[in-house]
Computed example of a mutant assay.
Amino acid sequence: MAGTDESIRALLAGNLKRARERHGLSLSELSRRSGIGKATLSQLESGSGNPTIETVFSLSRALDVPISALLDAPAPRPFTVVRAAEVEVLSGEGVDLRALRRITSGDTTVELYDQRVRARSRQKSLGHAGTEHTVVQDGVLLVTVDGHRTELGPGDYVGFDGSLPHSYEAAGEAVRSVLLLHYRTTAATEPVHDH
């Protein structure tokens, strides 16, 4: 995903405009669907906005596209090395995400993220496209999905429908985890039509 050549802002600017136009949406309509102000959307499309995790998730949900469709750079080479220092961090109210890789095979797209939940912080999501999978590497992660809460420790896994409201919380020290999102590619790339 975003590397040294293209910033998250630049990638989001081009990808957001293309996705919006592909769906035949005006800025006003996308604003209504996403709950993001029209002026903010205009700034994001021009590359001058400051995107957050919450913003990107809202746009993913409103456009019914994978998060990587908004943040991904052109297709990677066959041999890919991603250096931590070369990946921009996308921060939210409680989480820092580093997008490591997008893989498409057949009708499935998989996105791989390094996810860090800051100490005594919580990250909420109203939901987004895809299925979400998380494996805790270090720390204790509290995960709430559609009102159901569970505690995960190192090596533990949780998977759920990403469209459900959910949150990640580090009740104590920071939590390191691997986040994997997967989507059916056909559903993620087909235009949304109003009926």
Rank of each mutant, 00 (worst) to 15 (best):
D107V: 03
G106R: 02
E111N: 03
R118H: 14
R98M: 08
L112C: 14
V89G: 06
Y113T: 15
R98G: 13
I103G: 10
R102Y: 00
A99S: 11
D96S: 10
L112M: 14
L97T: 07
V117A: 01
G106I: 00
E111K: 00
Q115C: 13
A99G: 03
V95G: 08
E111G: 01
T108D: 07
V95M: 08
Y113K: 06
G92K: 01
T108Y: 09
T104G: 12
A99Y: 01
S105L: 10
I103E: 00
E111W: 01
V89A: 07
S91A: 03
L97H: 02
R98H: 12
L97D: 04
R118Y: 12
R102E: 00
E93H: 12
R118Q: 11
R101K: 12
R102C: 01
G92A: 01
D96H: 11
D107P: 07
L112F: 11
D114H: 07
R101D: 13
R116S: 10
G94V: 08
R118F: 13
G94I: 09
R116W: 08
S105Y: 07
R102T: 04
L97Q: 06
A99F: 02
L97M: 09
G94W: 08
S91H: 04
S105F: 13
T109W: 02
E93D: 13
T108A: 09
D96P: 15
D96Q: 10
E88I: 03
Q115P: 11
A99R: 03
Y113L: 12
Y113W: 14
I103W: 07
S91C: 11
Y113F: 15
D107E: 09
V110I: 06
E93C: 11
R102F: 03
R116A: 05
L112A: 14
L90S: 10
T108Q: 09
I103T: 02
L100F: 05
E88W: 04
T108C: 14
D107N: 09
L90H: 04
V117Q: 03
L100S: 06
E111H: 04
L100C: 15
V89R: 05
T109F: 08
D107W: 07
Q115Y: 14
E93T: 15
D114K: 03
E93V: 12
L100V: 11
D114M: 02
